[in-house]
Simulated assay, not measured.
Amino acid sequence: MDRNVSVGSGERLLEELVRAAHLASPAELPVVLNRYVEAMGLGRAVIYLIDIQQRLLVPLVEGEPELELDTRWPDGPTGPTLSEWKKAPPAG
């Protein structure tokens, strides 16, 4: 956060952002988010949506790259994917 933005004003801006996001349409979200990101001195932000297979993050606005997700366990490529893990019975 910008050092010129106090914790109190940062919290206020975050509350305003959440309130504004609830009132905004999906198409308005990037504009709303960037208004508050700039006010907080954080540079810029991008909103991503996950695809239905949960393997790719797709930007809400054009001009940003799609991001592939690595859903494997940290122990390597042989571990289950996140989708497989969600289907597994609980341990214990």
Score class of each variant (00 low, 15 high):
1 M>Y: 15
1 M>D: 12
1 M>Q: 14
1 M>K: 12
3 R>N: 15
4 N>K: 12
4 N>M: 06
5 V>S: 10
5 V>L: 01
6 S>L: 09
6 S>C: 09
6 S>N: 09
7 V>E: 10
7 V>N: 13
8 G>M: 04
9 S>H: 15
10 G>D: 07
10 G>I: 06
11 E>W: 06
11 E>A: 14
12 R>C: 06
12 R>W: 04
12 R>M: 11
13 L>I: 09
14 L>V: 12
16 E>G: 14
16 E>T: 00
16 E>Y: 04
16 E>R: 11
17 L>M: 13
19 R>T: 08
19 R>A: 08
20 A>G: 00
21 A>F: 03
21 A>N: 06
22 H>I: 03
22 H>K: 10
23 L>A: 14
24 A>T: 01
24 A>V: 02
31 V>E: 10
31 V>P: 01
32 V>Q: 08
33 L>Y: 05
34 N>K: 07
34 N>V: 07
35 R>K: 14
35 R>H: 13
35 R>G: 03
37 V>R: 07
37 V>G: 03
39 A>N: 01
40 M>W: 05
41 G>R: 04
41 G>N: 05
42 L>I: 05
43 G>C: 06
43 G>I: 07
43 G>L: 04
44 R>K: 12
44 R>E: 13
45 A>E: 12
47 I>T: 11
48 Y>K: 09
48 Y>D: 13
50 I>A: 12
55 R>Y: 07
55 R>W: 05
56 L>P: 00
56 L>C: 02
60 L>Q: 15
61 V>Y: 03
62 E>P: 02
62 E>Y: 04
62 E>H: 10
65 P>N: 12
66 E>K: 13
66 E>N: 08
66 E>L: 07
68 E>C: 03
68 E>A: 13
68 E>F: 08
69 L>Q: 06
69 L>A: 01
70 D>R: 10
70 D>Y: 09
72 R>M: 00
76 G>N: 10
77 P>K: 07
77 P>W: 03
78 T>M: 01
80 P>K: 02
83 S>D: 12
83 S>P: 00
84 E>W: 05
85 W>L: 06
85 W>H: 05
86 K>E: 13
86 K>F: 08
87 K>V: 01
89 P>V: 03
89 P>Y: 00
89 P>L: 01
92 G>Y: 02
92 G>W: 09
